[in-house]
Design a protein around this nucleic acid. Structure first.
Lengths: 231, 231
DNA sequence: TCCAGTCCTTGCGCTGGATCAAACTGGGAA
DNA sequence: TTCCCAGTTTGATCCAGCGCAAGGACTGGA
């Protein structure tokens, strides 16, 4: 079995305060895995027997309601932990995680979690901070959904993706992974039809350019205005 | 200064595994405070210099958007911790907490938090579990807001209050603290007008009875049906 | 007892977006 | 090259729920 390179973890917040031997130790217990686009990393309700670090690619976290509608809760960028149910005393995953693009993860068995928290300096702190940030985002998202109109919500959703995962291309900032109109609809509680119309209108106004599954924001500031300055 | 009685804390989850001397120690560092109905316990954005235990009464957690609209995030029942920003590595409160009815709290300075976590067995675990539950509820709420229609959302909101804080009275279950139509509107992202109409309709159908600021649910099962079986 | 401030109700018209329906397009499989 | 399908566009219609407006009723204080 190939040894994983230590550089994979250095610099990532949860592990940034650790020395080489500890990193080595952590890596030796990890199982790397490649996920095709669209493949499930873990599924809502399943026993949470592993937690993951996303090394490369993007992951979409989705929730399905009893009535079958889907809701995209968040996107995860490389370098972040996912499936950290054990941190919150849960035994099952609260949502489903799918690879939004081809993705690479490391996985550890959940039983190692308590050891990570106590053994590795900074790991616990960073994890709580991450959780705090996610909770904050959740609150923001909630307030947005409850108070803003559809156009503002869609603008916010696009901006959120751009901020978290955008990369510069000629003429604007591109969302770094494939997104469909339906995905955006599921992030904002609307329909793909409405999203399509909005993007078309924005394109005519020179705010975005979009080809199939790809969105380039050419005038972020104008999108911010449309979003109602919330974020 | 009067000593606080140890029975105040015994049995409450965060402290349930502790012995008398530890409880004593914790109480001796606490500051009790009474809050009139409508008074702020802490305010969004303020420096989080204290965390609280709600001993009696109910607290409403509210978020205000940049545009001035309000959103009620949750209600807290007696026995729960609030203002636990420090647990998530935050230095300011993420939302405003207001006494929904006359309330009694104990407060500790934030600097004691790390000590609580390390010194007191079960405190950390219980806190993470609480956070996990809140995160779960936030997810549920989000999915609900994104996918359900107004009537279902209002039904869910009423049920949530009933489940968390309901007390039996003759002919039904009553929400244990004052709630206005406007409050419910802010929980569900609608207007007080719509809430008023819905309650009126439900009252005609014999599902609820409501007087000013008071709601009694007489047919919870029917409300569950209306809510779309989500929660 | 009266008053003022909240809170609640109800009617009406309008519209943002959902829903329904249909056609188009680009890209991958074969 | 062709076919197929997921993803997208666009039109037409409809209605849930918002906004506006006005009036009513309960409550605590003076």
């Amino acid at each position: 079995m190939n040894k994983l390179d230590e550089s994979l973890l250095t610099g990532l917040p949860p592990f940034s305060r650790l020395e080489r031997p500890q990193i080595r130790e952590i890596l030796d217990q990890a199982t790397p895995k490649r996920h095709d686009e669209g493949a499930e990393v873990f599924r809502e309700g399943e026993e949470a027997d592993r937690f993951f670090l996303l090394l490369d690619g993007y992951v979409r976290v989705v929730r399905t309601t009893p009535t079958g509608d889907q809701m995209v809760l968040r996107h995860i960028a490389p370098g972040q932990l996912i499936g950290i149910a054990p941190a919150l005393g849960r035994t099952t995953y609260p949502a489903t995680a799918t690879a939004a693009s081809e993705a690479l993860t490391l996985a550890w068995p959940t039983r190692l979690w308590p050891g990570f928290v106590t053994r590795y300096e900074g790991f616990a702190t960073e994890t709580w901070a991450t959780l705090g940030r996610r909770m904050q985002e959740l609150n923001d998202h909630l307030a947005e959904l409850a108070t803003k109109a559809v156009e503002q919500r869609v603008a916010s959703a696009v901006l959120r993706m751009v901020n978290q995962t955008g990369r510069k291309v000629d003429g604007g900032i591109e969302i770094a992974f494939p997104v469909t109109r339906a995905n955006i609809a599921e992030m904002t509680g609307t329909t793909l039809h409405t999203v399509s119309r909005l993007l078309a209108a924005w394109e005519k106004d020179g705010i975005v350019e979009s080809r199939r599954k790809h969105i380039v924001v050419t005038a972020p500031h104008r999108l911010v205005l449309l979003s109602g300055a919330g974020g």
